[in-house]
Design a protein around this nucleic acid. Structure first.
Length: 492
RNA sequence: GCUCCUUUAGCUCAGUUGGCUAGAGCACCUGACUCUUAAUCAGGGUGUCCUGAGUUCGAGUCUCAGAAGGAGCACCA
């Protein structure tokens, strides 16, 4: 798979190039061909063999395997739907054509016409009458048995990975299906899919470092969005009562098995609904997806069965911390006492945190990983929820939930803060953090305050990391295995 | 950003205590074969041993530095 640009090719590559030059010199350049009439595919022939037996079909695809090479040859053709065997017989094709067929290489793309039949061994095949080279492959595909294993090569040359591994292909087909079903689900509920800017001068809606870029004509710095939240809420202000966007966001952070710098986020906003309504919708959505995909109410992830049958467990964050650590921070209102308990629990904090932040640290350190079956963790401390409405029965907390499955966060939602005065003071708090060196503090968005002053109805909002959801449904351990072209460092 | 592991033919991999011309399978080339299934049989090795220094009579192997990838940690409310 080398990317040679000079003429110093190895023997095999040179041979293939010579074959191409030969064809071109004989006025038979495959690259001059613009189309081929295809009227069937391998899957359809397999499924409807009885009907198609002895019928003429026209197929196109890539040669993946060659067997025989005497006076009878068997080539495996791979198309968009699977593989089918080509039966090539010298007698019926004639010596010239048969010899020419022998010069075809694994990886070449051909168009084929012939009759459907079964070999003596019972293998569904095409008795080829016509075969035409549509594209000469000048590279060598990986080994037929082991395929492409090197993860570096798999991600950098995803096209080869997709050719060699049906399972990889299936993951991305499922990905597409999941996104389609999510749209179906939301559209049926009356949500409007919208598009909002990727480029803006302020990157808000989450706590993360943005990617910076520059607009030349305006001579201003701009940022790639880190969330969809603020523009979507402006649309709620504008009178669209149910909106969603499922699209790419960008965060300038480290990469690992669950983080890619660009990833797909779903955010929905529904006017006149609160976080309880959203919770119910999330249960419905996941159940809808698992039924559509597997006709089941559970999914197997890394050998663990995850039940997605509603209702899911609902519990306050502070109560979960009590349950796991034995320390009830809900009863602690004195900061010194909270620090004392934090020390006993060996929490990683620096004595600058508020009680709410300590609760969150305890949650992350002790609770998160234990939440295997779907769990709605609710009532996050107000300090870590700058865009969520307070719970007015206990304003230390917010009307918020996060859905945890398998120790990871799958959804984040809240009753949206629509009080412009409260929002202003939350932004002010974030500015203070920013001035103290927190690069991820939320920026002050003046126009968003203006929008809230115009008036946003009570609204329930939701964010879902789509890639992780796809990992769950396709049983993949790494986010790179559900993103076609994951971010990679250049190889020099 | 830190720690550990990996990097040898187009692909998947082996390579002993530092030793003489670096191996296997697939792929490829030559030949045989008119129903094969990772076809088979006979012959053929196509290489920047990730890169750069160093130790040594001698380095794929040892040391140091670097690159890319992987796992874990940190970061990511």
């Amino acid at each position: 798979m080398s990317q040679e640009t000079n003429d110093n090719l190895n023997e095999i590559l040179q041979l293939r190039k010579d074959k191409l030059i030969n064809l071109q010199n004989n006025n038979r350049d495959p690259f001059q061909i613009t189309k081929y009439d295809v009227d069937n595919d391998s899957k359809n022939i397999e499924l409807n063999f009885d009907e198609l037996q002895e019928k003429q079909v026209s197929l196109a695809g890539r040669i993946m395997l060659k067997r025989g090479q005497g006076k009878v040859s068997f080539y495996d053709l791979q198309d968009n739907t699977g593989r089918i065997q080509l039966f090539l017989k010298k007698d019926s094709l004639g010596e010239d054509l048969y010899n020419e067929i022998k010069t075809l290489d694994i990886g070449d793309i051909v168009g084929v016409k012939g009759e459907v039949f079964k070999t003596k061994m019972g293998q569904i095949s095409i008795r080829v009458q016509e075969i035409i080279l549509l594209c000469k492959s000048l590279q060598i595909l990986p080994e037929k048995f082991h395929g492409l294993k090197d993860p570096d090569l798999r991600y950098r040359q995803r096209y080869v990975d997709l050719i060699m591994d049906t399972k990889v292909r299936e993951v991305f087909v499922t990905r597409s299906l999941i996104q389609k079903y999510i749209r179906t689900f939301l559209d049926d509920k009356g949500f409007l899919e919208v598009e909002t800017p990727v480029l803006s001068t302020l990157a808000g809606g989450a706590a993360a470092r943005p990617f910076a870029t520059h607009h030349n004509a305006l001579d201003i710095d701009m940022y790639l969005r880190i969330a969809l939240e603020l523009p979507l809420k402006r649309l709620i202000v504008g009178g669209f009562d149910k909106v969603y966007e499922m699209s790419r966001v960008f965060r300038n952070e480290g990469m690992d098995a669950t983080h890619n710098p660009e990833f797909t986020m779903l955010e929905t906003y529904e006017a006149y609904a609160d976080y309880n309504d959203v919770m119910q919708m999330v249960e419905e959505l996941l159940n809808f997806l698992v039924k559509k995909l597997f006709n089941s109410e559970s999914v197997i992830y890394q050998e663990k069965e995850i039940s997605l049958k509603p209702p899911y467990r609902k519990i306050k964050m502070v109560d979960l911390v009590t349950e796991i650590t034995g320390v009830n921070f809900d009863n602690i209102r004195d900061l010194e006492e909270a620090y004392k308990q934090a020390d006993i629990l060996k929490l990683e904090c620096n004595k600058k945190e508020s009680i709410g932040e300590i609760i969150n640290i305890a949650f992350e350190q002790y609770v998160e990983e234990k939440l295997i079956q779907p769990t709605f963790v609710t009532h996050h401390p107000v300090e870590i929820s700058p865009l969520a409405k307070k719970d007015f029965s206990d304003p230390r907390y917010t009307e918020r939930f996060e859905l945890f499955i398998n120790g990871a966060e799958y959804a984040n939602a809240f009753s949206e803060l629509n009080d412009p005065i409260d929002q202003k003071s939350r932004f002010a708090q974030q500015m203070e953090k920013k001035n103290n060196g927190d690069e991820e503090a939320h920026p002050y968005d003046k126009d968003f305050i203006n929008a809230l002053e115009v008036g946003m109805p009570p609204t329930g909002g939701l964010g879902v990391g789509i890639d992780r959801l796809i990992m769950l449904f396709t049983d993949q351990k790494s986010i790179r295995d559900v993103i076609l072209f994951p971010t990679m460092k250049p190889e020099n």
